[in-house]
Amino acid sequence: MSTFSDNPYNPNPISKIGIVILLGFTVFHQINIYFEWAIIFVISFLFYKNGLKNDALKNIAFFAAFSCLLPDIVIIRNMNPFIMMFFMLFIVCRMIYLPFSAGKFFIKTSDVGSIISSMDKIKVPQNISIPIAVMFRFFPSFREESRNIKRAMRIRGITFKNPISYIEYVIVPLLVISSNISDDIAKAAETKCIENPVKKTRYLSVKIKTVDFAYMLLMLVMILGGILW
């Protein structure tokens, strides 16, 4: 997420997010199972080529579990409604699995710098791109701070026995500290000319590589093919 590298098998963030949105169509339009498998394999291949071997395998395993598990539900037909509802959840997971998988690929393989460059490239207004950049910056701080607060609470002997006051004790310091950090981030940005009206440049450029074309094209073919088949 934080460091950038140049991998010929890593599409730029714009293509990756484009694919996520495109795969959103598969939720509403039934596509052929073989094409679905093809999409999963393309994503796993890219995971693998980006050094994420575990994710490549998990991706295939989860999809296999979802798509092979469901037919067996026939047996459960006569079971009580509560378990049926539980399987409803599985069906929902299965439905959104394709865009979810592409979304995971986007998040795991994109560095923040490139995402910011991409937002500039597609002319996302500053009022939206700056808060998004801040989110990436703030999230790790948030994790750190909430861990510290929880630790302080354990040492003070505050437990979850009274959930309402527990939540109060977490959220007050958390929001106060977050507000302070927010001021610090803003000061750091302002003293580095972020409000300068000249056209900004980016150190990391958004490159359109062969893999971008290949990824886009393969996915388009698969989705259209799957729907028309």
Partner: peptide, 18 residues
Amino acid sequence: THFFNINTTLELLFYLEN
């Protein structure tokens, strides 16, 4: 807390980008 990027190189160059 006084930084805006999460990558060190980009933080160094942030001013120049702006």
